[in-house]
Design a protein around this nucleic acid. Structure first.
Lengths: 292, 292
DNA sequence: CGTTACTTTGAATATAGTCAAGCAGTGTGG
DNA sequence: CCACACTGCTTGACTATATTCAAAGTAACG
């Protein structure tokens, strides 16, 4: 069952298996997974936290569920989303290994979103009550938690926020790079990976129409900067993808030398649009990249 | 100097003035300002935190500054922003009284954004070192900090995130309502207030062009749902503003009865667009609301 | 009173969305 | 093994919404 995720077993936590066959993790495992420094006196701690396995498509929690546990992803790929006033799904993020799910809801003691698994997953359940105990016992742990939340907040604010200004091409380009980086952090290739989510979910996450996502991915493919087959992606020119921007209006840039950098981007975007419209006729003008 | 902000002095913290004329606050003041419960043994705490006054247009911190202090807004209106790769300003939020500035940067110990004052401000400086001390001494305080950050994170994720799907009208409508609510929390009117920021800053914050902001505000005015003169706003029909949505595509809504609710919004948006295009000729079709 | 910064307005354009149709991969059952 | 349906993805043509460019109007400021 878990094989389909092809996770090197070496870096899966929770080897303290018991007679039942269930996995359990102690605090040291958890700190390592969260990439925080474990307090020195923590290895004496006897607490064990239960793992739980989910098949693809199962639900970890729904909006309004009591926040009994935080969920720490040990392995697998998930999707957190909410439903707006009109019943539209809004994808919030795609948690992966090491992500702590639920920290955005501790102030209400109630989940505000739903999280479902996109692949088979191994999840560590951390009771909220245990968090409170632990932060009392180990001051450093509380501070580490602050770091984790600060990291999350910074991600939302400094990475995701600026997306609102970007063109569809730039959003998707950066999305691909971001996924690559996340895989890289897990020890996989940042260049070649499998998007676990559907076009629909990508579109929803980026605030685009599904057709736009499809089109832009095809354009990227034709330009030779990526390869896509289904959800298999190979990033060929990450620089290109990362460099895409919304054509910046002269008025929104207070100062700065926008000379060469924007010149470059102007051309690229034009090319994209050009291909976008006239691809069948001309192919592209890119230097000898093979176009399918 | 501070008069221009017209803040009822009763709710300004920091009455422990000293011979120097500077204001200082203790931990109880700070907890109250942050709306967190003060640990019971905290009133014995002798720590005093210095206030600092800023004139409009001054800088609290710049990106890459060391995170020596967190800034707690006691009074005034500010703007946090960053500059993207192309030199474009990106407004992140508009801190007001009670907001703790810098929590998104504790993990790096370095600010990632700039914060400048939009009005005269009174800011309490809380040394980061003191935060660490305090969380060690008062466990509850650390947990309260977690709540604060969770609240912030939820705001970014559940309030700001979904903005990406909204039409310009909806973004601006909700922005106005949000500002109203924030003023209400400070004891002001939620209906009548002064936007402290320029159209440019609003546009930037919402990811729109400045002209779009201007136009939509005018349309709202003509529709009779608000009044705008410069930065003075009166909200007349908050329901209308809050109800604006992006016309939802049939494909993005998985399920749900979208009958009357969307019908209503379809009509409203059409009206807006209609006015948007043909306002001079027809006025509007709204029930007898006075137009300017 | 003239200069500057901010805002409004109009007309043209571009980008992304919408609608509609077809295609491809997957799985099921005959 | 192939027809069938199912789901997800792609493509095209058209449309709508927001941006861009240009210009003029207004408030603010020395």
């Amino acid at each position: 069952m878990m094989q389909s995720i092809a996770m090197p077993s070496r870096i899966v936590f929770g080897h303290h298996s018991k007679a039942t066959g269930e996995l359990w993790s102690n605090m040291s495992d958890i700190c390592e997974l969260l990439k925080i420094e474990a307090p020195s006196n923590l290895d004496k701690d006897l607490r064990q936290f239960q793992h739980r396995r989910f098949k693809a498509g199962q639900t970890l929690h729904l909006p309004n569920d009591a926040l009994d546990n935080l969920f720490l992803v040990n392995c697998g790929f998930l999707k957190s989303s909410m439903t707006d006033d009109n019943g539209n799904e809004l994808v919030l993020n795609f948690p992966m290994k090491g992500e702590l799910i639920g920290v955005d809801s501790v102030h209400l003691r109630r989940h505000q979103s739903a999280t479902i698994t996109l692949s088979d997953c191994d999840i560590i359940l951390i009771p909220y009550a245990a968090i409170l105990e632990l932060t009392e016992e180990y001051v450093q742990l509380g501070q580490a938690l602050l770091h984790i939340m600060s990291r999350e907040l910074a991600r939302e604010r400094y990475i995701l926020g600026p997306q609102r200004t970007l063109s569809a091409e730039a959003k998707i380009g950066r999305f691909l790079c971001m996924m690559g980086e996340r895989y890289a952090q897990l020890g996989y290739s940042s260049r070649r990976f499998n998007l676990r989510m559907s076009r629909n979910e990508i579109a929803n996450y980026l605030g685009l129409a599904i057709e736009t996502v499809s089109r832009v991915l095809c354009v990227f493919h034709r330009l030779g900067v990526i390869t896509v087959h289904q959800r298999e992606v190979v990033i060929i020119d990450a620089e290109f993808l990362r460099g895409l921007i919304k054509l910046s209006t002269s008025r929104n840039k207070p100062m700065t030398d926008t000379g060469k950098k924007n010149l470059k981007n102007d051309r690229l975007i034009s090319d994209l649009s050009l291909v976008h419209v006239a691809d069948r006729h001309t192919g592209t003008t890119m230097s000898g990249v093979s176009h399918m």
